[in-house]
């Protein structure tokens, strides 16, 4: 610390300050996003999650590739092969298909990337330093959400492009536009699903001061929805709904819909429903269909637009849940005392 003032004479001069306006200045928001992405990509946590997802992806692709022959030689759907959708969804039962896998892994990915977003910074004492800079609080929160979303979008996009490219080389079958659209919307849906868990875990990281508490709570919520929720719904149904043996067909249908709607409170159910519709064009409805409804229907696969319409409530539900969690964390964070 010798003779510091000599340095400062120049540092603080007006000339230097006026220079600043001419250069390219990065906005604080994109600076935070850049730094967050850099941190994320270099962190062990992300490498582990990445390895997990890449392994699952290639595992399920391998299983579907070995069973592709039977799937393709099966009943053709109106002359359309839709090979790439089959690669994504075919399975012989030894391993679930990729989109089913993603309904658990997506949650883990989201929780893993977000559970310590805010509280770790607070614990380390970096939050107060960051907020003492000319940065809006909501910019920080948004950056904490956007950066993992950018990373996972890149991840899933590259995985599906890799799958398409690999498929092209192995089978030589060219891809149809409809498949591109469906796969793209599957990727976006997956990002949305991970985004939901991400925003939930960010909410918990704002709420709880300890990263472990928020991680455990998030995992608890996830376990509740994947395991216990179905059991609870079953118990409730058994306790409250009448015995189907004494019901007319119409009433059975009604109660079935009630049960399905109850199950749809679980985000993983929403995700599985929506991806199933998007990846399997033959699926026409997510609820039970009566014979009257089926009568007169032409047994063709749905167009992309129709599939999207069937899955639309699910997509909206997921989007709404994500936005709700984010809005709540915003509300909590904006007026929060940030001292450690």
């Amino acid at each position: 610390m010798e003779s510091p003032v000599i340095y400062f004479k120049d540092q603080f001069s007006k000339r230097l300050k006026s220079d600043l306006t001419h250069h390219h200045i990065v906005s604080p928001f994109s600076t935070i996003v850049r730094k967050e992405i850099g941190d994320l990509v270099r962190s062990w946590r992300f490498i582990v999650l990445l390895a997990l997802i890449v392994l699952t992806f290639f595992g399920s692709i391998y299983v579907s590739m070995t069973n592709l022959k039977t799937a393709v030689t099966g009943p053709m759907e109106e002359g359309r092969l839709l090979l790439y959708l089959k690669i994504l969804t075919t399975t012989d039962g030894s391993l679930p298909s990729f989109h089913i896998f993603m309904s658990f892994l997506g949650a883990i990915l989201g929780i893993g990337l977000g559970f310590d977003a805010v509280n770790a910074e607070q614990q380390n004492g970096t939050l107060i330093r960051l907020l003492a800079q000319p940065v809006y609080r909501d910019n920080l929160l948004l950056a904490k959400f956007i950066s993992p979303v950018i990373v996972i979008t890149t991840l899933f996009l590259s995985l599906s492009l890799l799958m398409i490219g690999g498929g092209l080389i192995i089978t030589g079958v060219s891809i149809e536009w409809v498949e591109v659209l469906r796969i793209l919307s599957f990727v976006l849906l997956t990002v949305l699903y991970v985004g939901f868990w991400l925003s939930l875990s960010i909410l918990l990281s704002v709420k709880f001061k300890q990263a472990t508490t928020s991680a455990l709570t998030a995992i608890g919520i996830w376990l509740f929805f994947t395991i216990f929720y179905k059991i609870v719904v079953n118990m409730v149904v058994k306790a409250f709904l009448p015995d189907p043996a004494f019901l007319s067909q119409g009433e059975v249908l009604y109660y079935n819909n009630v049960i399905l709607n109850l199950l749809r409170f679980s985000p993983s159910q929403l995700y599985t429903d929506a991806t199933t519709v998007l990846l399997l064009p033959a699926v026409r409805s997510l609820g039970p269909l009566t014979m009257e409804q089926m009568a007169g229907a032409i047994p063709t696969p749905l167009s992309f637009r129709e599939s999207l319409l069937v899955a639309w409530p699910q997509i909206t539900g997921l989007l709404a849940a994500t936005v709700l969690c984010f809005a709540l964390s915003y509300y909590l964070f904006m007026r929060r005392e940030i001292r450690g």
Partner: peptide
């Protein structure tokens, strides 16, 4: 420094 709007070059 970046958060305070100091340009990339400096």
């Amino acid at each position: 420094g970046r958060l305070n709007g100091i340009p990339e070059s400096t």
